[in-house]
Nucleic acid binder design. Structure first.
Lengths: 335, 335
DNA sequence: TTGTAGGCGTTATCAT
DNA sequence: ATGATAACGCCTACAA
């Protein structure tokens, strides 16, 4: 592989000049520029990005830590991020944190050791304090799907509470009063906030959530099926079920079918996230939209603006969810 | 950030010695090792990976090019790859090729310019010749889901033809004779091979595929729904439908339901890939298993073995699919 | 076992 | 506008 040195020799100029035409940061006479370009072309010269990084103290790489690489949710997020960075010539290093404390911390350290210029973190297990400490470090980072007041300027998040509110509010407006709830792991902020929204919507109608109709699931399909069984086992009547995310809703739909119950005739179901497959369940799932791809893109832009100082479009940090009506909810028939 | 130099000063040894304890490739007296370790600890020393890369001519990074970052298929693949590399201390740079020629080539060049030690390529649009030329370059790469005879030693692929054969064979064994087929884009090798397997299975029964019952889709859900409409529009009878992948099968299921047809009573459906949501469709989709996560892992191992010379477990390059019976197929009732 | 010194391919600061 | 030359932080013969 040709080096800058060989290019300079062939072009009959100095190292520095070659560097200048590459980065065009310093004026170079047009004729010499041409000479250099020609030499580069002739040698098939490609700058060594490692050497550039060492000398410029900028690796042009940003680390992404997500909980999982698979699953409809993170895929959409990564797509938004990658597209934005690729266009800017930055590259993306990914690591999975698996929602586990140790793995998430390791992941962050791993990414830091790779000398990323910045980090985009979608972490769940790590504590607020840990992140606040991390902010003292000289590796800048943005937080996706998390709200920490002390770090508000680097948080990009959805109003989960509002989403939870909207889901339940829609059911209430349809006449439902006995509403079961399958939550995600309540130690996860988004699961908790969604549930709080649920409670607020109930309060609007002078109602209170019935603890017997509550189940704490795992955000996965099995959580939905187990949750439904548990709720049915109470023998209590209910006409609607809110699930903390679409995966659990899908599990609940499947379980209901296997038990001979039909949705929405036996009861209505609402999910959360609007992942791509929500449209392909049967019945099609009514859910809350989570614009995760756009949010990933915003995280990328934040980095572009704050770290690479490129003049980019506005960065939106707070996103509002909205309700997507489909076929899994119907009005509560007066009995 | 502390450098190796400061560590050496604090420990009272030379630069070289510090480097040696880090890489432990050269014997170092235990007492000096301790001193160095202590100094590193005290300074919170972290090696600069960029400098390491420049000096050692090894970036410890491998580039991954996939068609898409979202979708159940690639997610599973990335998971297999990331886990394997992370454990080996290598990191993963990803790029999306979107199944488009220009984007795939750009992606490869992008990854090369990032001085990856190796590439894992899941490319569809790029030609065999291009890849054969690429093999002359000094960037080693493995091919996932592609078979090129001249590059056989770096191909990790599934026997798609066999998969296609198994899908149809199962239907034939269940008594089906009029079998419709919704293929993926036929310029994609896997789509073509799956269809060839379909034809071979038919041939076993002295049957020939009916071109009127064939539809070329796009591997996406809409392909399945459009395909089903097109096939129904012919008015020809059929009792089973094979789809080139699960996404299209899912689309066909949804479309069938909307048309008032019930699967598998009106007709049976088989998919391909066994993506995670295949279990959550209604009815649960009978399909062909595609062990993509394991294949991703193998690609990673190939790199570990061939490029990083680490003694790893055997690398399996050829994978065999098998049939997963679920609820979308039933025996053809004799009429 | 340990130290010395040259090199990896750029960038960037001075001069000129 | 251009050229020397010193970083950048580490690795690795070669010597001792």
């Amino acid at each position: 592989m040709a080096t800058i040195y060989e290019v300079s020799k062939l072009a009959g100029v100095s190292l520095a000049t070659v560097s200048r035409v590459m980065n065009n940061n310093t004026p170079v006479r047009e004729s010499t520029r041409k000479k250099v370009l020609a030499a580069m072309e002739q040698l098939g010269y490609r700058p060594n990005s490692i050497a550039q990084s060492l000398a410029s103290n900028c690796s042009n790489s940003v680390g992404i830590l997500v909980s999982e690489l698979h699953g409809p949710f993170y895929g959409a997020m990564l797509t938004g991020i990658e597209a934005e960075f690729r266009a800017a010539g930055k590259h993306v290093i990914i690591a999975a944190g698996h929602s586990e404390l140790a793995t998430e911390q390791e992941g962050i350290e791993f990414l830091q050791s790779r000398s990323c210029d910045a980090l985009i973190l979608h972490v769940e297990a790590v504590s607020d304090d840990y992140l606040i400490k991390l902010a003292q470090t000289d590796t800048p980072f943005v937080l996706l799907n998390r709200q920490i007041p002390a770090l508000a300027d680097r948080c990009i998040s959805l109003n989960n509470e509002l989403g939870g509110y909207l889901a339940t509010q829609h059911l209430l407006a349809q006449g439902h009063r006995d509403i079961a709830y399958i939550a995600g792991p309540m130690w996860k902020t988004d699961a908790k906030e969604r549930y709080q929204g649920h409670q607020r919507a109930l309060a609007d109608y002078q109602l209170v959530a019935n603890p017997a109709l509550f189940f704490e699931g795992d955000f996965r399909e099995t959580g939905g099926s187990k949750g439904l069984s548990a709720i049915l086992a109470t023998g209590l009547p209910f006409t609607a079920l809110v699930c903390g995310n679409d995966e659990m809703a899908s599990g609940a739909l499947t379980a209901a079918r296997e038990l001979g119950l039909s949705v929405p005739d036996s009861f209505s179901v609402v999910g959360f996230d609007n992942v791509n497959f929500a449209y392909y369940t049967y019945p099609k799932l009514s859910t809350i939209d989570y614009p995760i791809s756009a949010m990933g893109q915003m995280a990328a832009r934040w980095v572009l603006r704050e770290v690479y100082r490129s003049a980019t479009v506005e960065v939106q940090q707070l996103f509002e969810p909205h309700f997507i009506p489909r076929d899994s909810v119907k009005a509560c028939s007066p009995t």
